[in-house]
């Protein structure tokens, strides 16, 4: 399997050839990586009362184990650029462990943020739910791998990118099923404004031992500007036959009929548009069980 996590200046040519990096814009990535800006400050007072453990990421990598039978809820903020270093996270969930993780990337709009996350369901019945919200950075490069290594585990990955100006969000995902009877769901929602660019490269990998896998992968792009660019490369690599795997990708702007309906009912156009964008993103935000956190995210995004 190709290792697409590790970005480095020396590997540029090799990476260019690698399909996983198609449509990447390395020059812009390097330019953003060379830029510094003071970290964003986040007002956490609105989060009082949530039972998520809140962490603001520094430059160090994280290795976390969620022991068997336990439950963990994590909220992480990425508030500064990572330069050319990839911020790495490895999480392993044991038998019947439950992990709910939300990552909010709201770094300054001039910098680059490179992340690589590997989430492994290692014990039977483990459940991992994760939501990434990317609203900051000039160039976001996010490599996400979710891996089912034990039976009956459930993996859910939601990604929301809201980009404007000349921001670029470059998301690469893998859903790896190495054993029988596991489920994964991946949904990437992109809202593009002005001249923003999003790149989605996803892959569902089912090894010969991964029978009875059910995996889905979707990328939906909502384009609100006439100079936006959306690239979608969903993918399937299936080496076992007893599977239900699918992917989908859509691109469109706001539905005129929906907008018309709202305007008919006296909703001002700006509000109506906002409502439709919110509805588009809400599908992902709804997966967050905690109402305080969900409300906080809604306010951060819009």
């Amino acid at each position: 399997m190709k290792a697409f996590e590790n970005f480095s200046r020396e590997r540029l040519d090799a990476l260019r050839l690698d399909e996983n990096w198609r449509f990447s814009q390395f020059e812009k990535l390097l330019a953003a990586a060379g830029t510094t800006a003071p970290a964003t400050t986040v007002d956490l007072s609105a989060l009082a009362g949530t039972d998520f453990e809140i962490v603001t990421r520094d430059g160090s990598d994280r290795h976390i184990a969620v022991p068997a039978g336990t439950q963990k809820k994590m909220l992480e903020f990425i508030v500064a650029g990572t330069g050319e270093k990839t911020l790495t996270t490895e999480i392993e969930a044991g038998e019947n462990a439950t992990l709910e993780r939300v990552v909010v990337q709201c770094a300054p709009r001039e910098v680059a943020v490179l992340t690589a996350d590997t989430l492994v369901a290692a014990g039977t019945g483990a459940s991992i739910k994760t939501l990434f919200v990317n609203i900051g950075a000039a160039y976001t490069r996010s490599a996400l791998t979710v891996c089912a290594r034990a039976e009956h585990c459930f993996l859910s990955a939601q990604i929301v990118n809201c980009v404007a100006g000349t921001q670029i969000a470059d998301i690469r995902t893998r859903q790896i099923h190495e054993v029988r009877r596991s489920v994964s769901r991946l949904l990437c929602k992109n809202v593009l404004r002005d001249s923003a660019t999003t790149i989605f490269g996803g892959n569902i990998v089912v090894t010969p031992d991964g029978g009875e896998t059910a995996a889905t992968q979707s990328c939906n792009n909502l384009s609100l500007g006439d100079r936006t660019t959306a690239h979608a490369m969903p993918g399937l690599e299936i080496d076992a036959n007893d599977v239900q795997c699918s992917h989908g990708a859509t691109n469109s702007s706001l539905d005129f009929e929906q907008l018309f309906y709202l305007l008919q009912r006296g909703v001002p156009e700006a509000v109506a548009r906002q409502m439709l964008v919110q509805a588009f993103v809400n599908q992902s935000l709804e997966t967050v069980g905690d109402p305080i956190l969900a409300e906080f995210l809604r306010e951060r995004i819009f």
Partner: peptide, 24 residues
């Protein structure tokens, strides 16, 4: 079986939809 589509859309006045499935 493997499936590798690539879809690029510029601007907000066009529509694409893609779906793929693999099953027995």
């Amino acid at each position: 079986s493997s499936t590798y589509p690539a879809i690029t859309v510029r601007g907000n006045a066009s529509q694409t939809q893609h779906e793929a499935s693999v099953s027995k």
